[in-house]
Simulated scan of single mutants.
Amino acid sequence: MSWIHGLPAATVDAVRVAAGAAEVADGIAPLSGHVLEALGSDQYILATRSGTQVLGLAVSHDDDPVELFVTPEHRRQGLGTELLHAALDRAGAVWAHGDLAPARALAARLGLVRSRELLQMRRPLSRSWAAAQVAASALPAGVRLRTFVPGRDEEQFLGVNARAFDWHPEQGRLDLAGLRAEMAQEWFDPDGFFLAVDEHDTVLGFHWTKVHRDGAVPLGEIYVLGVDPAAVRNGERVRGLGTPLTAAGLAYLAERSATAMLYVEGDNLPARNLYRRLGFEVFTTDVVYRRAAAT
C-alpha cells in the first residue's frame, strides 16, 4: 500500500458515502470532523475496487494519529489489518473512534497500547437551566463578556489559545490560516464565540461554541473553552473565568439545541470534574493506540 496526496472531488464524494455507511453500521463516525472538512487535501491510502468503489481508507492529517476505516461489507478480510500496519508505520499511532469492541480486539492481537483517551460528554439543554447557570455565575471585577469580532480579535485570540493549550497536540498548534479556515465553515457564528476581556479590552479567556446541523436535530457543542494562564489584572492573576464563560456559551446553545456536547481529554480531571458538576456524562470514548515501547 502506498500513500497519495489529495483526492479528486468524485472520490471525496465516494469516501463520504463509504464513511456514512460505516457510521450507520457502527453507530459512530469513523473520521473526525476536521478530517471530514479537509477531505481531499491530506495524505491517503485509498482501497478501491475497479477504481471507484471505496473499500477502506486511511487518512494522515498533519502529524496526528492516522484515522482509518473499512466499509462494513469488506471487513474481516484482512484489509483493516493491512491499513493499520501502514498507518502505524507512517505515524506511529492511530485513532479508534468509539472504542469499539472490534478495534479493541485488533489492538490486543497486535499488542498495541492505549496512549490517549478523548471523551465526548453530553447533557440535555433547556433555556431555563442555562439561564440559571448564567444567573449563578459571576465575573471577576473589571471583566466583561463580549463576542468575537472578525478582523479585529484573531491575533489576541490566537495568543490566548496558544498559551492555554500549549500542552494540547491539536488545539495548541492553531494558527491564523487554520483559524480563518474554521471561520469559513458554514457553522461558524461569531455571536456564539464569547471573549472575556478587561477594561482595556485585553482578551483573558474565551468560549467558542459550535452548532452541528448535519444530523436529524441540531447538536450544540462547547467547541473550545480556554483561559489565559498568564492573565493578570492589577498585578494579580485573574481567576474565576471558566464558569461564566461556560454559562454564556450554554445559554447561546440552549437557544439552538436541546443537547450540549463537548470533548475533553480523559486525563484532564479538573475539566472533567467541572463538566460533571454541570451534569455532563460520558457519551463516547475515542482512543489513540500505539505500538508498545520496545523493552
Rank of each mutant, 00 (worst) to 15 (best):
D189M: 03
A177G: 14
D62I: 01
S32K: 07
R237N: 00
A292L: 02
F157H: 02
V211D: 09
V224D: 04
T246Y: 02
Q171S: 11
L79G: 07
G266W: 07
A14Q: 10
A21T: 07
D13Y: 11
N234L: 07
E37L: 12
R90V: 06
I4R: 15
A260H: 08
F194V: 11
L31A: 00
L46E: 09
R276A: 12
V238N: 00
D214S: 14
E73K: 13
K210Y: 11
S60W: 15
L253C: 11
V35K: 00
A22D: 09
S137L: 07
D64A: 15
H34K: 04
D228M: 06
A131G: 15
A132L: 08
T295R: 06
G192L: 06
A231T: 00
V70E: 11
G111L: 00
R75L: 08
N273V: 02
R123K: 15
A14S: 14
L110E: 14
L179A: 09
A135S: 15
D191R: 14
G92C: 11
R116V: 13
A21G: 14
G78D: 04
D166S: 14
D13H: 14
G56E: 04
V288G: 03
Q43H: 12
F194P: 02
R290A: 08
A216Q: 12
H168I: 02
